[in-house]
C-alpha cells in the first residue's frame, strides 16, 4: 500500500495524484513511467511520471479518466494498492544532455501529455537548456499546470481547438509556423497528434522523439501487449521505449491496436459506473 496525499480533479476528467513511493522515485528519471493499481483486484494502469521529489519521496501523476479503471482510480483517497516503477527507458536528451548542447529543442504536448513533458523540461532547464513548449488542448479549461510549465520553459505557445486560449487550431499549425527555429522535437500526447507532428517534421527533416502509450499488462517485457512496429520491426514499448523516433513508428497500426478491447471496455465502464454509484461517471 502506498499513501495517497492528494487525488484531486484539476480539469474536466483530469486528476492530479500525489503518492508516497520512495522506491519508485529513488532512481527515477524524466521520461520513465509507472504502473499503478487502485485496489488489489484493479487493472494495472501505465502512467508517465509527472513530477517527483526525492527529498519528500512524493511521486506526482496526472491522469485522464477515460474508462472503468481510471474512473476507479479517481475515487480512491487513502491508499494506492500498487505503484511499480520506474519502468522503461529515460528520455535520451535527459540521459545525455551533453550530446544535445547545440540543439534548439521544442516540446509539443497535447492534453494530459503535458504531464511527462514537465519533468523533462525542468531537468533540461537545470542543465542550462532554453526549451520552448507548444501546448495544445481542446479548450482553455483543459490546459493544465500552466504556471508549472511557464516556470521551466523559455517560451510557451498555447493553442486550443476553439481558440478560447492562445492560437486557434492545432499544435501542428504553430509548429509549422515556428519550425525553422528548431532542430529537435519531442512530442507527447494523443496518438493522432504525435502522428501529425511526426509527419510534419519528417517533411522538414527535424528529428522527432515520441512517447508511446499502448496497452500494457505487466510493463516489464513479459506479455508483449504493448508491441509496436518501429522501422518495420516489433518493439515492446515497455522496455524498448516508451520513447521512439517518431519517423519510424507505424502510427496507423498502433491506433488500431488501441481498440483491441473496445467492446470489453465499454462493458467494464458500465459495470464500474453502476458499482460506484450515480456521482461517478466519465464526464
Amino acid at each position: 500500500m502506498y499513501e495517497i496525499l492528494k487525488n484531486e480533479k484539476i480539469a474536466t476528467n483530469c486528476y492530479l495524484m500525489e503518492v508516497v513511493a520512495k522506491d519508485v522515485i529513488r532512481n527515477a528519471k524524466p521520461g520513465q513511467f509507472v504502473i499503478v493499481m487502485a485496489k488489489e483486484d484493479s487493472e494495472r494502469i501505465p502512467l508517465t511520471i509527472y513530477d517527483y521529489d526525492k527529498d519528500s519521496d512524493v511521486l506526482s501523476l496526472i491522469y485522464q479518466v477515460v474508462g472503468a479503471s481510471t474512473l476507479e482510480l479517481s475515487t480512491i483517497s487513502k491508499n494506492l494498492f500498487a505503484v511499480s516503477g520506474p519502468l522503461g527507458k529515460a528520455n535520451e536528451i535527459c540521459v545525455h544532455p551533453e550530446l544535445f548542447k547545440d540543439k534548439k529543442i521544442v516540446y509539443i504536448a497535447g492534453g494530459v501529455g503535458i504531464a511527462p513533458v514537465y519533468p523533462q523540461v525542468k531537468y533540461l532547464k537545470n542543465h542550462h537548456f532554453d526549451i520552448d513548449i507548444i501546448y495544445g488542448a481542446r479548450e482553455k479549461e483543459l490546459l493544465l499546470i500552466q504556471d508549472k510549465i511557464e516556470s521551466v520553459a523559455h517560451k510557451v505557445f498555447y493553442v486550443t481547438d476553439d481558440g478560447s486560449y492562445g492560437d486557434k487550431g492545432f499544435v501542428t499549425n504553430v509548429l509549422e509556423r515556428e519550425i525553422q527555429n528548431y532542430d529537435l522535437c519531442v512530442t507527447i500526447g494523443p496518438l493522432i497528434m504525435m502522428k501529425n507532428v511526426s509527419e510534419l517534421t519528417r517533411k522538414y527533416h527535424v528529428k522527432t522523439i515520441v512517447s508511446l502509450n499502448p496497452l500494457m499488462v505487466d510493463g516489464s517485457g513479459m506479455c508483449g501487449a504493448c508491441r509496436c512496429e518501429i522501422e518495420g520491426k516489433p518493439k515492446f514499448a515497455c522496455i524498448d521505449g516508451p520513447e521512439f523516433d517518431g519517423h519510424q513508428v507505424n502510427f496507423d497500426l498502433l491506433i488500431k491496436r488501441m481498440h483491441i478491447y473496445k467492446e470489453e471496455e465499454k462493458e467494464k465502464l458500465l459495470q464500474m459506473e453502476k458499482d460506484l454509484g450515480k456521482d461517478c461517471e466519465v464526464e
Partner: peptide
C-alpha cells in the same frame, strides 16, 4: 504470456474482473 497473465494474475476469467480478456 499475455493471455495467461490476464487470466491468472489479473483474474480476467471472473465475471466481475476489472481487467478484460478478449
Amino acid at each position: 504470456n499475455e493471455i495467461l497473465s490476464r487470466i491468472n494474475l489479473m483474474g480476467s476469467f471472473k465475471k466481475d474482473a476489472k481487467t478484460p480478456i478478449k
